[in-house]
């Protein structure tokens, strides 16, 4: 038992937490931006898959790793555009459209992958992002190993949390975005165009989600294979609620989930006589418990999932 607790004090565990949390941070931020503007984006699972494939393929075809991330963002935005067109100007069910996008984007990603890549016994690999210790900061004991010896996309994710929080709280753009998610009629009455704001929010959010997928193939692993997103998108949808639609809490939620995940992985090797499936379940069960404890008090954007039609109320 003591062994199990000892794990919690190792730098390698906490470094793993940050690594596991990175795709979730991208995903939850993207979902949060969409939802703050009033659009639920259940396309996230597929968009992350698409991002993973496009990011990897760009590098496989000789592109730079950063070019891979950029292409993933563009692919995500394209899928986001489709979701936005269906749900915002046409006002279709956001659930149905989102699930459709997930099926379409995942299937399309696998299809294009098989079409363009020769797969032998093992999937082909690329040279992924390597940990990049930040000069100076990485020398700090413990914290240096945990936070400042990560791959570059993890730093991007952390910076993005602050950026999105600042954008939402402190800029006219952020205010317009939040207002669109609360009451699009108010936005229109103030001379702004809520339809355009929603479309852009969904596209930008989807681009960020795709980064989460791309992280998997260009930093966490070095290849693309079917099923690799493994429900991370759905976790992000739950994390947005857990976070009460706030970027800071979203980071916290992603880290918490990642902690459960990293801890159970290590527990499997330490504790014997317990079926490993139980450990695999643990992060999900704990997430649901956390959701119940936290999310009941959450303040939902009032116009979330309500299509906006001009002149109607």
């Amino acid at each position: 038992m003591m062994e199990a607790l000892d794990i919690l004090t190792t730098a390698s565990l906490w470094a793993a937490v940050l690594r596991i949390a990175t795709p979730l941070i991208f995903g939850v931020l993207g979902a949060l931006i969409c939802e703050r503007a009033g659009v639920l984006n259940l396309g996230i699972e597929g968009i992350m898959t698409m991002g993973a494939m496009v990011g990897w393929l760009t590098v496989y075809w000789g592109g730079d790793l950063w070019a891979g991330l950029a292409m993933a963002v563009l692919a995500g935005m394209a899928m986001g555009w489709l979701h936005a067109m269906l749900t915002v100007p046409l006002g279709l069910s956001q659930h149905v459209s989102g699930l459709g996008i997930t099926l379409l984007a995942s299937a399309l990603a696998y299809y294009l992958y098989r079409l363009w890549v020769q797969v032998g016994d093992l999937p082909p690999t690329i040279e992924p992002f390597q940990p990049w210790p930040i000069p100076g900061l990485s020398a700090i004991p413990f914290l240096g190993d945990v936070v400042f010896t990560q791959t570059p996309p993890t730093y991007v994710a952390l910076i993005l949390v602050g950026l999105v929080a600042w954008m939402l709280a402190r800029t006219p753009m952020g205010l317009a975005l939040r207002m669109t998610g609360e009451n699009p009629h108010a936005v229109e009455a103030q001379g702004l165009n809520p339809v355009r704001i929603r479309i852009w929010a969904v596209m930008v959010g989807s681009g960020i989600m795709a980064l989460g997928g791309a992280f998997l193939t260009t930093a966490a692993f070095n290849s693309f294979f079917p099923g690799m997103v493994q429900g991370r998108g759905w976790i992000c949808i739950a994390l947005v609620v857990f976070a009460s639609w706030r970027p800071g809490k979203a980071l916290l939620g992603a880290l918490l989930f990642a902690l459960f995940d990293a801890f159970q992985l290590r527990l499997q090797t330490v504790v014997e006589g317990v079926p490993y499936q139980l450990f695999l379940m643990a992060p999900y069960v704990l997430s649901i418990v956390a959701l119940i404890l936290v999310a009941r008090r959450a303040r939902v954007p009032e116009a979330l999932m309500q299509p906006y039609r001009r002149g109607e109320r």
């Binding site: 402190r170 609360e182 009451n183 108010a186 936005v187 702004l192």
Partner: peptide
């Protein structure tokens, strides 16, 4: 009323009065 209940009075009033691309508010 075209107001957002979850936002503050000031936020409800200033929306739309500044250019969207302005950095900071």
């Amino acid at each position: 009323f075209t107001l957002a209940g979850n936002l503050t009075v000031l936020e409800n009033i200033v929306i739309g009065s500044e250019p969207l691309w302005k950095v900071g508010s």
